[in-house]
Design a protein around this nucleic acid. Structure first.
Lengths: 329, 329
DNA sequence: TTGAAAGCGCTAACAA
DNA sequence: TTGTTAGCGCTTTCAA
């Protein structure tokens, strides 16, 4: 079943059938009816692959994320996908699994598909992939971070500001002894750095840091808190912990409660990411909220606008964040 | 940059350059070197869209899931995606948002892309989309359920058996008064039905059911438990609850603890899906584990095998499930 | 092992 | 409003 067949059945030229399908307004009512009838009779589904090749417009957007299971990026991807689909686009999804090599291979494969746009969770460091992407002229949105030199467009927020804001929040609560529980993640490192600076600027002591590596689980949060308890003298106990994800924070809270430590009376715990159920656990988790849906929606809009030749008036957007104060602080 | 350009630069015919790229073994070492050099010099990335059209092999697999955020299907999708990528395939991801209309539109769009295979989270009910899919001859894996009449291939497990197994587990623990907390989901309904039958067969009383509709959140679990408390006389209180997802179960547990009810002493709670952190909350959550990764890996294998013309010797596979007993029961 | 010719199924550009 | 022609960038088929 090809457009040819449908056109023949409808008694029109292939291009007329094509127009009836893609730009129904540009065709007479009579033709529209005949083509529609032919399609219904044959069950014809246009081959978008061929259409893409002929028009150099694939109507595919690729998204590259580090991971998809329990990932803070998925809300963004979901909204991105839904927004794109409603506009006639499809999403190709790639996972880099936090590996730069894999990310590079992924990007190479992605370029081969000639997508009309690429969404990146994060900012791409200089390297072969970045050079390729730059050369490809494909519209690109980097995200979840800020930089003066994006490849193309950028929709993010400042991790430094977050570190400072969280420190301020905890200091305002009267906390004095801080710890950080962090996954091995460059963005988390920057939040941590800003957090430490703010703590020092307030004249408060050393910040104790636990790095959980690539293990972003609730269990790691529990383990990290055990480590903190073991390492810090109870005479001068940690009274506030900022974690690089909500799941880690929930682990810390779980372990603290299991050890009979009151959250938030004795210990404040703060997460990052605002998982959907953070408000409903006991105690409800204070956290940093990023509006992932906003990023997804805006990214879809930007990518489609650029692909369709519309101008982007603000290619770098800071969507900000909110400190969500709940029971855990 | 096209294959033409690269071929000209290398001093060979386009088809020879194509072979150097795709079947390096079928080409002399000398040619390989020249083509490789030309590619390196130009930064050429083959246009897979054109290749797909010419060869009728897109090396794209489409996956359709109800949702992606906090969804039990994501482990499957992640493994599916990784397995495919390692074999040179890309994944297109569609979300039906639990809407049959959207699913139908999605499937239509998917067919238009001429994927080499389609993965469906769940079983497709008879209807227009199913007919289309059947007619398209595209390899298809349905999943997460069992049926005698799949569209093509099937990798799943029995929801009836799960309902029975969970009932047995709770009855064996000496529980007598049961409730179900269920999202509006046909598969959950079947688990519920089998659960109720097993309870009745054991001579135990009516099962109290709370339907939370489309709200699969921890909050809904909490609300459901409030409802159960309000509706069931304390003289004959519910002592075991089976939930249609782990998140709902955690909500029930959270609310129970908040109300001073001991889990599991006074109340047993069982989830479904085995979220990654279920083992690490307090109390650890008993649940039904589906090996999502196995499903994803096998689905990728089946889809690629069929796409590449290899025979499938067992097109219907029951991957089973495990009852994971933890502290909450 | 290499190449020439033809064509995958569609749409852009132009003409009627 | 409709049609003709040419071609998107690659691979298949067949021949050398």
């Amino acid at each position: 079943m090809t457009l040819q067949d449908v056109a023949k059945l409808a008694g029109v030229a292939p291009i007329t059938a094509s127009r009836a399908i893609n730009k129904p307004d540009s065709v007479s009512a009579e033709v529209l009816l005949k083509v529609q009838a032919a399609i219904d009779r044959t069950g014809y589904v246009p081959n978008r692959m061929a259409g893409s090749l002929a028009s150099s417009r694939s109507r595919i957007i690729a998204a590259v994320v580090p991971s998809t299971v329990m990932s803070v990026f998925m809300q963004t991807v979901e909204t991105l996908n839904n927004t794109l689909f409603d506009a006639g686009y499809q999403l190709m999804l790639g996972q880099s699994s936090y590996s730069p090599e894999r990310e590079e291979a992924l990007l190479e494969a992605v370029i081969g598909r000639r997508p009309d746009g690429i969404f990146l969770a994060g900012i791409l460091q200089p390297g072969k992939a970045r050079t390729r992407l730059l050369a490809s002229k494909i519209p690109i949105v980097e995200s979840w971070d800020l930089t003066q030199t994006p490849i193309d467009m950028l929709i993010g927020f400042s991790h430094l500001e977050i570190g400072r804001a969280v420190a301020k929040h905890l200091i305002d609560k009267g906390r004095k002894r801080f710890a950080l529980v962090m996954a091995g993640d460059e963005r988390a490192d920057r939040r941590a750095t800003a957090f430490k600076q703010a703590v020092h600027a307030a004249g408060l002591g050393e910040v104790y840091v636990v790095n959980v590596g690539d293990s972003r689980t609730l269990k790691s949060g529990r383990d990290a808190f055990v480590k903190i308890l073991a390492s810090c003298p109870s005479s001068n106990a940690i009274d506030a912990i900022f974690c690089s994800s909500d799941l880690l924070a929930m682990g810390v809270v779980t372990e603290a409660i299991a050890k009979g430590i009151n959250v938030p009376k004795t210990l404040s715990v703060m997460g990052f990411g605002d998982v959907p159920f953070g408000a409903d656990v006991e105690p409800a988790l204070s956290t940093v909220r990023i509006n992932g849906s906003d990023i997804g929606r805006l990214a879809a809009q930007y990518l489609m606008d650029k692909a369709e030749g519309r101008p982007i008036d603000k290619p770098i957007v800071d969507v900000g964040f909110s400190i969500i104060e709940r029971a855990s602080t």
